[in-house]
Amino acid sequence: MLRILVSIKQVPDTTNIRINPETGTLIREGIPSITNPYDIIALSFACYLKNNYGGKITVITMGPPQAKSSLREAVEFGADRIILLTDRKFAGADTLATSYTLAEAIKYLQAEEGPFDLYLFGKQAIDGDTAQVGPGVAVRLQVPVITQTVKFETLDLEKRIIRVHRKSENGIEILEAKLPVLLTCDKGLAEPPFSPFPLILKAVKAEPEIFTADGPVNYQREKLGLRGSPTQVKKVYTPEVKKKGKIVDLSTTPLKKVVDEVIELLKSKGIL
């Protein structure tokens, strides 16, 4: 039996983001929250493994109370235990503080019910796009990490060896790792399963366990949230647009003249 931990994050759907141009802040009204798409891949992969090898899935998230809805969604993927880390003291965490908060919670869970075999993270969260939390947690748990996992090949439960593909700069690496290992999940690894009706029902009613800064995990306060974050935002601003260049209109300028101008520009850059 496999013991799988999945770490997910609820993010604003950045496809429809609007910014207040005066303050440079996010206009939050009407922006839907979604489960980070790469974390959906992680959940799908966990579900695939559970269905094929048997096992138990524990899902954690750190965020405001509304992140509950992402944990309920996780139940549709077969999550057996869901945990919400929520506290004002967690707020404002950068990736160092986030990886600390998550890793300590994971260590607590392991002390309680035994070690996990696989830790599944998303390749990155689409709000921050940092891809730093997965490797950070792996270091804190002292387990190997494989980032940008794009394909699963085999799992040998006896030898405890998993074989996966990782996307690198020049191609695809085929890697073998001994369990336990932390994977960050990229497109292609797994497709969302078809959720059976009883699971959907279960999800609607599911209530996560709540962990706060006061318990049950024993946190060092100074490592949490804004206080535990070495990086600080100094300022935000809307990017300036380069000044306008020349504009010509083909309906009023002869084509030949425009073409000649492009050719001259290409020559000036040594292209022609």
């Binding site: 160092l96 990886s99 921050g128 730093q132 490797p135 950070g136 270091v139 990490v145 974050s229 990086t231």
Partner: peptide, 16 residues
């Protein structure tokens, strides 16, 4: 892949 782990080992900030 490397930066996230090293920043954690050094307990310092990392900007992506």
């Amino acid at each position: 892949d490397l930066a996230g782990g090293v920043a954690t080992l050094l307990e310092t900030g990392l900007t992506a």
